[in-house]
Amino acid sequence: MAKINGNELKPGTIIDHDGGLWAAVKVTHVKPGKGGAFAQAELKNLRDGRKLNERFRSEDKVDQVDLEMKDQQFLYETDGKLVFMDTETYEQIELDAELLGDRRPFLQDGMTVAVQYYGEEPLNVRLPVKVTCKVVESEPVQNGQTASKSYKPAVLDNGVRIMVPPFIDIDEDVIVNTDTMEYSERA
């Protein structure tokens, strides 16, 4: 297991913490006015589903678990479970849909993802870093807005709300970073 600093934690990272395997579902980096910066992490136990909120300072060391990655294709969702198929052996597995947290809407039918295994046990899913989505709702451009600093709200075809530059219109494809859930570029 590799040791990483507490501030290097990001969504999808698997750590060995308090005697169990935990996935970071949501991570917020906080820089308070007084004191040192820290990462506020929402962790989910990969075996029993318990949730835990934990603070990690930059000087804290956490054990990142090295997992084997296998490319698998997403097939469908049923009863809160995501069904994936190994593209080589055609074997199917089920994983809890809550594992992806806020990033769940970015999982698209037929998408190839990296499923992380701990031995023979499938534990986690890593989405591609960039996913193409269509803008279905957005405000019209206002006169005087420049593309340099201003952003406007938009709703994507998967229901996620993000901020996009003013030149992006309805029915345009945009590329979204699934780690930060922010607009990346025009498709």
Rank of each mutant, 00 (worst) to 15 (best):
M1Q: 07
M1R: 08
M1E: 08
I4C: 03
G6N: 09
K10N: 10
T13L: 09
T13H: 06
H17W: 15
D18K: 11
G20I: 00
L21N: 00
A24G: 11
K26R: 13
K26P: 01
T28W: 11
P32Q: 06
G33H: 06
K34L: 09
Q40G: 07
L43S: 04
K44Y: 04
D48I: 01
K51L: 13
K51R: 13
L52C: 02
N53Q: 14
N53R: 12
N53L: 11
R55N: 14
F56I: 03
R57S: 10
K61R: 14
Q64M: 13
L67A: 00
L67I: 00
E68F: 00
E68N: 11
D71Q: 13
F74L: 05
T78Q: 10
G80S: 12
K81C: 01
F84T: 01
F84R: 01
T87W: 06
E88M: 10
Q92C: 09
Q92S: 11
Q92F: 05
I93W: 01
L95P: 02
D96R: 15
E98W: 01
E98S: 15
L99N: 04
L100G: 01
L107E: 05
L107D: 04
D109F: 08
G110D: 07
G110P: 09
V113Y: 01
V113W: 02
A114Q: 15
V115D: 02
V115Q: 01
V115T: 05
Q116G: 14
E121C: 00
N124V: 07
V125R: 00
R126E: 15
K130C: 06
V131Y: 02
C133R: 15
E137A: 11
S138K: 05
E139H: 07
E139V: 12
P140S: 08
V141C: 10
Q145I: 11
A147T: 14
Y151I: 07
K152D: 02
A154P: 08
A154M: 07
V155G: 05
D157T: 07
N158A: 06
N158C: 13
R161T: 15
I162E: 04
I162V: 15
M163G: 05
V164R: 03
I168D: 03
D169V: 05
D171F: 05
V174F: 06
I175R: 13
V176H: 03
T178W: 05
D179T: 11
D179H: 10
D179S: 11
M181N: 08
E182P: 02
S184N: 12
S184T: 04
